Simulated assay, not measured.
Amino acid sequence: MRPACHVISGLRTGGAETMLVALCGGLLARGMPQHVVSLTGDGPNAAALERLGVTVHRLAPRGAAGSAVALLRLARLIRSLRPAVVQGWLYHGDLFAAGAHRLAGAPRDALLAWGLRNSDIDHARYGRLLAIGRRLSGWPGLVVSNSRAGVDFHLAEGYRPRRLAVIPNGIDTVRFRPDPAARAALRRELGLSDEAVVAIHAARLDPMKDHATLLAAAACRPEVHFLLAGEGTLGLDLPANARALGRRDDLWRIQAAGDIAVSSSAFGEGFSNAVAEGMAAGLVPVATSVGDAGAILGGLGCLVPPRDPAALAEALRAMATLPAPARRAAGLAARARIETAYGVGAMAERFLAAWIAAGAVIGGGGPRTGGGE
């Protein structure tokens, strides 16, 4: 089977990077070799990919001249690997994949695909990339979005792809699961009792995640303990019932210690991994109605308007005051929904089907030469 070559801006611990690792694992299990090109060098998920058997190529361009060199190196890699598909991830990865695909001669048997991972965005920060993507959106043979909200946003912004596919994220329900031993151990570490109601907020510090609304709601709910896991959270000014854990590479363990999975995002989310992973771990979800959150919850838990601390606080109160057996039952129903609708295997199969439908030739061929860049 011919390989897939993924191009992504970096391999830190964000949602897109986590999904890339999951997808590569699912595709490897189906016999398809995987190569990942990182445009910012290493990150925690580089090691995770290599443990799976994925070849990671690190380009890390610096400045305009460095970007040009990196683009040429990526084009050479595409010619060498002869992949079935060159799959971009995030705006930078999409644009580098498109440019290198063209420089490589736009091989007809190597499908160019883009990956959209967000819905509405901050135009002040990403407007230039969005404008370039809009102009080039007819280049790829396929554009994959992880949410319907992401498709609607980009079409409204002027994207005109030849073919679209919506493929929701796949959640590792073996890793993210109810785990009484991990729950008890982490609670002991943090000095939390078995009876404490704990809400988990897993998100880096970023305006789109709206920590301000979360903390305002938390201050209104002193009976709930909040654990904030994410890069940048250690510098936050927190109410007495909240604790920042900083960046964590063991989110499955953090989620297992909780009762409620909360997302306070104000904009930009496509498919929230944090909500879905929390649900897989048996937590009841409380989320703002951003991106495809409503589809993920499927009528479970509480969905509230964004940027509304009072509504978020009331939803947290409703979940926290459920009797413990009822809350556990609601969490198990949430897990069952993720297992049924959002497994890793289903995501891998959907990617393969979308690539093939767009013209990728998956079988036969292979790289002319091996080795990383």
Rank of each mutant, 00 (worst) to 15 (best):
Y91W: 14
H92A: 15
G93Q: 03
G93D: 07
L95Y: 12
G99N: 07
G99C: 14
A100R: 10
H101K: 11
H101T: 10
H101Q: 01
R102D: 00
L103C: 08
A104L: 04
G105V: 04
A106R: 08
A106G: 03
P107D: 07
R108K: 14
D109T: 15
D109C: 04
A110H: 06
L112F: 09
L112G: 10
L112R: 11
W114Q: 00
W114L: 04
G115R: 05
L116F: 12
S119A: 15
D120Y: 01
D120E: 11
D120M: 07
D120W: 00
I121P: 01
D122Q: 12
D122E: 14
G127T: 05
G127Y: 08
L129F: 13
L129P: 04
L129R: 13
I132W: 15
I132G: 10
I132E: 14
G133W: 05
S137H: 00
W139V: 07
W139D: 08
P140D: 00
G141D: 03
L142V: 07
V143P: 01
V144A: 01
S145D: 08
S145K: 08
N146R: 03
N146C: 06
S147A: 14
G150A: 03
G150R: 02
D152T: 13
H154F: 11
H154P: 00
H154C: 00
L155G: 01
A156C: 04
E157T: 09
E157P: 08
Y159S: 04
Y159C: 04
R162C: 07
R162P: 03
R162G: 15
I167S: 02
P168C: 08
P168R: 07
N169S: 15
G170E: 11
G170S: 03
I171N: 06
D172W: 02
D172R: 04
V174K: 15
V174G: 15
